Computed example of a mutant assay.
Amino acid sequence: MIVVLMKDAKALGIIQNAVSNQIFPWIANADSAKMAWNLLHSEYHGGDQVRSVKLQNLIREFEYMRMRENEPLTAYLTHLNELINQMKTFGEMLSNERLVQKVLISLSKVYDPICLMIENTKSLETTEL
């Protein structure tokens, strides 16, 4: 019995270490590896309709996302990357050009001169995010 509990605790630890900081709170209170796995499975492997609705919400959030005037650039880019990664988990792949365009159009006014310079001197197809 103790061996089974130790193996379950080890499996739970592996699952918890494998997920991102954003996903971890969903499984933090799981009592067993099976419970954590079931929570993740129901969240990410729901029916096609559930996955479609979740993806639509993420796409909407991506489209409307803008950098706030007092928000640090690193915080904005971190939040944007988290959103992009969530979209990838549901199968949405965005081209690098689209991601660069999104950043350039959604930065605050302070970055307008930099954005203008990038748009005029770089090819968005080859510029890395």
Rank of each mutant, 00 (worst) to 15 (best):
N120G: 09
N29Q: 11
N57S: 13
E71V: 00
I114E: 02
A11S: 15
G13C: 01
L55Y: 06
A33D: 10
K7A: 09
V103Y: 01
G13Q: 02
T89I: 08
T121W: 04
D48I: 00
Y111V: 01
A9G: 15
E61W: 05
M1F: 13
P72I: 01
E128C: 02
I14E: 14
E92V: 01
N85M: 07
R51N: 13
Q86T: 07
N29L: 13
K7V: 09
H79A: 12
S108L: 00
N96F: 01
Q16P: 08
S95R: 03
E119L: 11
E92T: 00
N38Y: 01
V3R: 15
D8Y: 04
M87L: 10
L94S: 05
N70H: 05
E61S: 10
W26C: 08
K34L: 05
G91W: 10
N38H: 02
A11C: 11
H41A: 15
I2N: 11
L116S: 11
S108V: 00
N17Y: 10
V103H: 04
Y64N: 13
L83W: 05
E82S: 09
L5I: 01
V4I: 14
T127W: 06
E82H: 12
V100I: 03
F90D: 03
L39M: 10
E97K: 15
D48P: 02
R66N: 03
A75Q: 13
V103G: 00
H41S: 12
L83I: 01
Q56Y: 05
T74L: 14
N85F: 04
L73R: 04
T78N: 10
R68W: 03
L73A: 07
E82Q: 11
P113R: 09
T89C: 14
L129W: 11
L94P: 05
V103Q: 00
L124G: 08
A9I: 07
Q49F: 13
M93R: 12
A36P: 06
M87V: 14
L104M: 14
H45N: 10
Q101K: 11
S20K: 00
D8W: 05
V19N: 06
E97I: 13
P25Y: 12
N85D: 13
G13A: 03
L107V: 14
L116T: 14
E119N: 07
G47A: 12
T127M: 09
K7C: 02
Q16Y: 09
L99I: 15
G91H: 07
Q22I: 08
E119A: 12
M87P: 05
Y111A: 04
E125W: 08
A11Q: 12
V100L: 03
Q101N: 14
I14M: 12
F90E: 02
I84K: 01
N81Q: 15
T89F: 07
P113V: 10
I15T: 09
L40M: 11
